[in-house]
Measured scan of single mutants.
Amino acid sequence: MAEQVALSRTQVCGILREELFQGDAFHQSDTHIFIIMGASGDLAKKKIYPTIWWLFRDGLLPENTFIVGYARSRLTVADIRKQSEPFFKATPEEKLKLEDFFARNSYVAGQYDDAASYQRLNSHMNALHLGSQANRLFYLALPPTVYEAVTKNIHESCMSQIGWNRIIVEKPFGRDLQSSDRLSNHISSLFREDQIYRIDHYLGKEMVQNLMVLRFANRIFGPIWNRDNIACVILTFKEPFGTEGRGGYFDEFGIIRDVMQNHLLQMLCLVAMEKPASTNSDDVRDEKVKVLKCISEVQANNVVLGQYVGNPDGEGEATKGYLDDPTVPRGSTTATFAAVVLYVENERWDGVPFILRCGKALNERKAEVRLQFHDVAGDIFHQQCKRNELVIRVQPNEAVYTKMMTKKPGMFFNPEESELDLTYGNRYKNVKLPDAYERLILDVFCGSQMHFVRSDELREAWRIFTPLLHQIELEKPKPIPYIYGSRGPTEADELMKRVGFQYEGTYKWVNP
């Protein structure tokens, strides 16, 4: 592979701008107003304001973009700056750019259920340069409990009458099928589907988006991507930290609602779906819905739930269990780990287990898709061969690698495990991989909904998990304890083995 010439960040961002501006969906010269509902909250200060700053800094926003914060707290732009700027990672050389960014910011205080507050917000936006005809993007960085009041008031008082209007809704989209349907029906009564952007930030990850290209742009994968060759698929999300004093919020939802029903299920769809007619948003989402419709409700015998306990040999936070978090209700049975087996009941995947695993306070930070292939028929190497695996590593250190057998150097035919490896950090030294939120917010500006969740996708996802969630809430089974920093409950490994996964433990990928 030829040595790549190092590029400056300015040059890299210039390439990104060229890609972005050559499309006809990006209205570079139009006025846009980006409204952050819930501007005083954690999500706004840690993710949304920093993301908008990065896009502005790199010249990736339309030229005439204004940012308006809205929340109940009586704040000023200076207050917003004070709480969000520490997350910007701005350099001293960017000081003038930073001043320009905050000059485009404003803030309006108001209630979430008060019509007069929204009329005041609308008047404020109209007073901005060309504000009355601007395109408006409303980001709901809010708890779902206020979605209905907020969307109703936005629709009645704050819509642009000339430009387009788009609304970005953060997960969780309800707690179960019934609450999700209620919320979807409410929002759909106010906005068209092409105006609604239900954001799952995992769909903005580079390697998640790469799944489609790997599958449908490489001839070698087509013939082997089926039940005849693939023994099982494992989708993993692991965090090495616990709730760390923020367990009160987590306890309301648990690990299945927080990660599995959305992030992991979306990745499953991209692995299992048929080739779409095109890369058009609805063509892709149509195929994802077909996959979900082929999955039956989760069966309790295919589920393992766990909850982390303190590690007596650990240090600091590792010595504390979930129930030691003062914000967690006493005696909570909320799971911090889950392993679930699903089956896609169609011709391509009949009988292939899709194993979804996620948890907190585990032994490493990792998100990946792992396809394990069947054993080689007619073994001539005296059971020395391990199964081939194709691994798409989402985070950290984005990579695609194939675990395969090669001859060990020497005189004899002794096979050993090795890999074919594409590590993004080595291959793409001159490429700026956008943060997931950067990519998705740019998608909203461009009107691309491919990486957002459609209402029928959402409904099918909740259909699969709601009976299990209701059973857990009714019966309150005690989750299996696992030690902070471990791989999780051993019962999860036993479940995976029972459905056909072979864990060798003899080879570990190392970032080159």
Rank of each mutant, 00 (worst) to 15 (best):
A78P: 09
Y202N: 15
Q11K: 06
R198H: 06
L16D: 09
L137C: 12
A149W: 12
T76C: 08
Y147T: 15
E85N: 03
S184Q: 06
W53C: 00
K47G: 06
V146Y: 05
N229F: 04
T236P: 02
I199W: 02
S189Q: 12
K45T: 08
E244Q: 12
R104E: 01
N105G: 02
S160F: 01
E18G: 11
R120E: 05
I48H: 00
Y139C: 08
A149R: 14
G14Q: 11
I80N: 01
F241N: 12
Q178H: 12
I36E: 00
K46H: 13
M212E: 04
F21Q: 06
F87C: 03
R257K: 14
N64D: 07
T236N: 08
A231L: 04
I224G: 09
S188E: 12
F56Y: 07
F221I: 14
R81C: 05
R257D: 03
L211K: 01
K46I: 06
H155T: 05
I15S: 04
A116S: 06
G254D: 11
R120D: 12
E3N: 07
A231R: 10
R57A: 03
Y249T: 15
S106P: 00
S189V: 07
D24N: 11
K238I: 15
K152H: 10
Q178W: 10
G247L: 08
T76I: 04
P92D: 11
Y202L: 14
S117W: 04
A141F: 00
N165I: 03
E19Y: 07
Q161G: 12
I230K: 02
E99C: 04
F34C: 13
D24Q: 13
E156Y: 07
E239G: 02
M37G: 01
G247C: 14
L137F: 09
P86L: 05
D181V: 14
V68P: 01
G204Q: 15
G69I: 01
I230D: 02
R166Y: 00
H201E: 03
M207S: 11
H155R: 09
Q133F: 05
Y70Q: 02
G222R: 12
D200G: 15
C158G: 02
I168L: 06
I256V: 13
T243Y: 09
L96W: 11
W164A: 06
D228G: 12
S117N: 11
K89H: 05
G248E: 15
H27I: 11
I187G: 03
C13P: 06
R175C: 13
L140D: 00
M37V: 12
L142Y: 13
I35T: 06
P172G: 08
F88D: 01
E252H: 10
S84A: 12
E206G: 09
L177N: 09
L130K: 05
F87I: 05
E239S: 09
H129I: 10
Q195W: 03
C13D: 04
G174T: 07
V77C: 09
M207I: 14
F250G: 04
I255N: 00
I167W: 00
S117A: 11
A25V: 07
Q195K: 03
Y202A: 12
L128T: 04
L214D: 02
N226D: 08
L121F: 05
E170W: 01
Q22P: 03
H201D: 08
N165C: 10
L20F: 04
N122G: 07
D176K: 05
V208D: 11
G254S: 06
Q161W: 09
L211N: 01
T10A: 14
E170P: 12
F26D: 05
F138Y: 09
L43Y: 13
I33W: 04
L183S: 12
S184H: 03
F34H: 01
D58S: 03
L190I: 09
L98R: 02
N165H: 07
G59T: 02
K152V: 14
C232A: 10
H32T: 11
W225H: 01
R57H: 02
R17T: 02
R17F: 09
L214R: 02
Q161D: 08
Q133W: 04
G41H: 15
P143H: 14
A6W: 08
D181Q: 06
Q22V: 13
G41V: 02
V233I: 06
Q4Y: 06
L60W: 02
D181K: 05
E148F: 13
I33M: 08
S132Q: 12
W164E: 04
I230R: 02
A2T: 10
L43H: 13
A39P: 00
C232P: 02
Y112A: 04
C158Q: 02
Y70A: 05
L177C: 11
Y147A: 13
E252K: 13
H155V: 04
L137T: 06
T145R: 07
F66C: 07
F102C: 02
H186M: 10
L214I: 12
I35E: 00
W164H: 06
R9C: 06
K82L: 08
Y49P: 00
G245C: 07
L96M: 13
V208P: 15
Y49M: 04
E193A: 03
R72Q: 09
P223Y: 06
E63W: 13
I33Q: 08
E193M: 02
Q28H: 07
Q83H: 06
R104M: 06
E93G: 06
G69P: 01
Y139S: 02
L203P: 14
V150M: 08
L203N: 15
S132N: 14
N229K: 01
Y249N: 15
R57I: 02
H124V: 04
E206M: 10
V77W: 04
L177A: 06
H201K: 13
N165S: 05
G247E: 08
L140F: 06
A116W: 06
C232M: 06
S106D: 03
A217K: 03
S189W: 02
L75A: 08
D176Q: 05
N210P: 02
R74G: 10
L55W: 00
M159V: 05
R72A: 06
